[in-house]
Design a protein around this nucleic acid. Structure first.
Lengths: 133, 133
DNA sequence: TTACATACTGTTATATTATAACAATTCTAA
DNA sequence: TTAGAATTGTTATAATATAACAGTATGTAA
């Protein structure tokens, strides 16, 4: 077994999969990732999903729920990983992570009337990007 | 073939499935719906998904993306169906649609720096509800 | 250094969610 | 009344995700 890459805090599989997502200009789906890492010895879905789960948990990537796809976090080393917002073009499917301090603060301090305490949110905007409109 | 229930704008299958979702205290998944409407002659997944797609399109129901489940719209006959917000308890899984005019206005008028024009958004808050915290 | 707990890996099988494709029926509006 | 649009029914299959189990690596505390 190769040694783990603990110097940067990610295990071997986590690093391979993070690198792939981080280099991708678009959100990647789990099975697209699988096909692309089979040459590196990652052969089965559970290996991909486990790495994805961990990367989401530590904020290195985010899941775009409406697309079942994953993007690397672009916001200052994932400080706001529990407060995510994305813009999604309905035509060309481009996804951008929105980093807007005011928006983030506004939502983070939003209080539910029914007394719920929020720890996390995910916001997905849909529309047409500059090119497509 | 039985006649369609056009008096209220929904087809037979759409009405059956909407009624089920509307009566449910919790979000329903597509296959849970399927199992529950088989006695009414809806036998196959495409019949369920087609009705769901249409109901989402016309704003009678919403999809909770993080749960792949569907809830009836509770907001004044679905006027804001293109601007949805939900609170989700991570412990008991209770989901509530948030109807907060200020929040809705704030997000509807949010402008993306990159010049994207938004037509729609979906916001999901996660935390612990009153009972669970 | 050992031994224990925790995290990670590999693997097979299967569960869950969703759509393609095609044929037929029903509805609606002109 | 008839043509187009929407809906239905059906079979098959695609796409997404997890269960379960066995083994390996790593950190840490005795």
């Amino acid at each position: 077994m190769t040694r783990m890459h603990k110097e940067n805090n990610l295990s071997k599989n986590q690093q391979i999969i993070f690198d792939l997502i981080d280099k991708s200009p678009e959100p990647l789906k789990a099975y697209t990732i699988l096909y692309n890492v089979q040459k590196k010895g990652i052969n089965a879905p559970p290996q991909v999903y486990r790495a994805l789960d961990k990367l989401v948990e530590i904020g290195k990537i985010h899941k775009i729920e409406s697309k079942n796809a994953f993007v690397a976090c672009k916001n200052s080393d994932c400080e706001i990983s529990k407060a995510t917002a994305f813009s999604i073009c309905e035509s060309c499917e481009v996804v951008d992570e929105i980093s807007d301090v005011k928006l983030s603060k506004y939502l983070s301090s939003f209080n539910h009337k029914k007394g719920m305490k929020f720890k996390r949110f995910n916001l997905e905007f849909f529309g047409l990007c500059k090119k497509c409109k």
